[in-house]
């Protein structure tokens, strides 16, 4: 069954027809040709499809497109204009926080979300004092970035990259 929806992706508006079964991830990758968010598991188990969905980091492999009519999506490719890089992307480059690059756009979007969540004072599993302020320690970054699997295992570099971007 088909449905017509509109999406705003990386600042551009689209009107498109999707199957009710189509996920936002497949809508982007297979309908709109935006392959910045990746499909690693298709079940919310790896984080490669992380984008900012209406401002919050989300896994769009688990989001039905039809249920997000009118949504605003920012992928890693939409974080900075062509030829420029977002501070998180620049930090990933400098820290060599990736190898194969497949999980990277999801890591980058997740990191942008993490920095925003920390700025809003959201606690995490490793926050010692739930009633206090949140400090961006390495343990906080690692815990918060744990929804993004990296099989090349660049974690040791991802954490400082997020710290570097967060310090700006």
């Amino acid at each position: 069954m088909d449905a017509e929806i509109s999406l705003r992706v990386d600042g551009e508006s689209h009107r498109l027809t999707v199957d009710t079964r189509t996920t936002l991830l497949d809508a982007l990758r297979e309908r709109l040709g935006n392959t910045s968010p990746k499909k690693g598991c298709d079940h919310g188990q790896c984080g490669a499809c992380t984008v900012l969905l209406d401002g919050q980091r989300s896994l769009i492999c688990l989001a039905l497109a039809v249920a997000h009519d009118g949504a605003e999506i920012t992928t890693a490719d939409g974080l900075a204009p062509a030829g420029e890089l977002h501070p998180v992307q620049q930090a990933f480059l400098e820290q060599d926080a990736f190898q194969c690059g497949y999980c990277t756009p999801g890591q980058v979007c997740s990191a942008v979300g993490v920095l925003d969540e920390v700025a809003r004072g959201w606690p995490s599993h490793v926050t010692e004092d739930l009633t206090g302020d949140v400090e961006l320690s390495d343990a906080e970054v690692s815990e918060r970035m744990s929804g993004n699997l990296c099989r090349c295992a660049a974690y040791e570099n991802i954490t400082p990259a997020v710290q570097q971007a967060g310090a700006r």
Binding site: T35, S36, K38, A80, L85, Q89, F92, F98, T104
Partner: peptide, 8 residues
Amino acid sequence: GEQKVRGT
């Protein structure tokens, strides 16, 4: 690297 951090 630049293409990889953008996802392109």
